[in-house]
Amino acid sequence: MTDSKIKDFFRDVIFGDPMTALGFVGVVLFLLVALFAPIIAPQNPYDLGAISIMDGQLAPGESLMDGTIAIFGTDEQGRDILSTIIYGLRISLFVAITASTIGTAIGIYLGLISAYYGGVVDSIVMRLVDVKMSFPGILLALMLLALMGQGVEKVILALIIGIWASKARVTRSAALGEIRKEYMRAAQLAGLSANQIILRYLLPNSIAPVIVMLPMIISGAIAAEATLSFLGVGVPITEPSLGMLIANGFDYLLTGYWWISILPGVVLVVLVLCINVVADRIREYANPALRHETM
């Protein structure tokens, strides 16, 4: 993609619609906050020296012992909720982006070899896709985590297993359309190896439909990770994501300390909505049939 095309894309697609522009700015802000969490957060909520139990369960806007104001309140341990959210955002985004990238890459690769080799490879991969798709993702993830136990890398693995299948299917059908074209035949006649053809020619021409889905995959992964962590089978308590923060605060919801659970949840929902607004717009833009209908 040339520079001017990228510029056009941002001008027409992202900033051409106020909701999308807002969502995009939101996503960028969330990413920056997650990236610079230790600098931005008022305190390190997991440094026992920095928190005091005397500051426990302060409502949003009340001031701590040292005089600073806790805008989002504190939890039962005296941790500043704003800080736990900023650190939690970091874990949520890290898990979701890692899992989405790896899961999508695996799906693309399997889709490509499935389309290129056909035959036995194709039927094995596609049968695996069928089996995977006949179970809801959350059930597979629960199954895996019940067998493996908690952990950041285990959640990532469970999410990857939930992600790859449909991407393999989409890539395969895009690649099947490409394989019949003449340049593929030319590449084969030129004596390139199967790997070279797949990576150099088939890959760039078949990944568009899946790449367009990537923002949606990431927001789905964020929600899935939050759900698993809320259920208590996701990230460990030492590395709380947004879902884990909501779960911890949930115990206090009925006693009136609503902010411990609700504020991380609001951040989670705003994050997912921001990504989805941008994702929807990109998908519409990429699909001429939809574009015609909505614009």
Partner: peptide, 22 residues
């Protein structure tokens, strides 16, 4: 329906509890 799709299920439940029960 878009919102119903994107907002995680467990969070919808918590909001229901906060509004109707608490």
């Amino acid at each position: 329906t878009t919102i119903g799709y994107s907002v995680p299920n467990f969070w919808q439940g918590i909001v229901l509890i906060l509004v109707f029960a608490v």
